[in-house]
Amino acid sequence: MKNPFILLCLCLIISSCQQSKDNSSKKKEVEIDTLDKTIEVNIPSNGETNRDLSQIKFVEQEQLMPFLRSYAKQNPENVVDIITDLGTFTVELYPEPILHRANFIRLAKLGYFDTTVFHRVDDNFVIQAGNSDRIGTHDFRSAVGDYLIPNEFTSKYPHDYGALSAAKYAEQNVSNASSPFEFFIVTKPDGAYHLDGDHTVFGRVIEGMEVVEKIDDVETDKSEWPLTNVGLDMKIVD
Rank of each mutant, 00 (worst) to 15 (best):
M1S: 07
K2W: 14
P4W: 02
P4C: 03
C11R: 09
I14A: 06
I14D: 10
S15I: 01
K27S: 14
T34W: 08
D36Q: 04
K37N: 05
I39K: 13
N50L: 12
R51N: 00
Q55A: 09
I56A: 13
K57H: 02
E62F: 14
E62T: 13
R69W: 05
Q74T: 05
P76V: 01
V79C: 02
V80L: 04
D81M: 02
T84V: 15
E92G: 10
P95N: 13
H100M: 04
N103L: 04
I105K: 02
R106Q: 11
L107Q: 09
F113H: 09
F113K: 04
V117I: 15
F118K: 11
F118W: 09
D123Y: 09
D123K: 11
N124P: 06
G136F: 12
F140G: 04
G145C: 01
P150V: 01
T154H: 07
S155T: 15
S155C: 12
H159W: 03
D160I: 07
D160H: 10
N173A: 06
S175D: 09
S175E: 15
S175M: 13
N176Q: 14
P180Y: 02
V186H: 01
K188L: 10
P189K: 15
D190Y: 15
Y193K: 12
D196K: 05
G197E: 03
G197K: 00
G203E: 05
R204P: 04
K214P: 08
D216R: 05
D216A: 00
D217C: 11
K222M: 14
E224S: 14
D233H: 14
D233E: 07
M234A: 09
M234K: 04
I236P: 06
V237L: 08
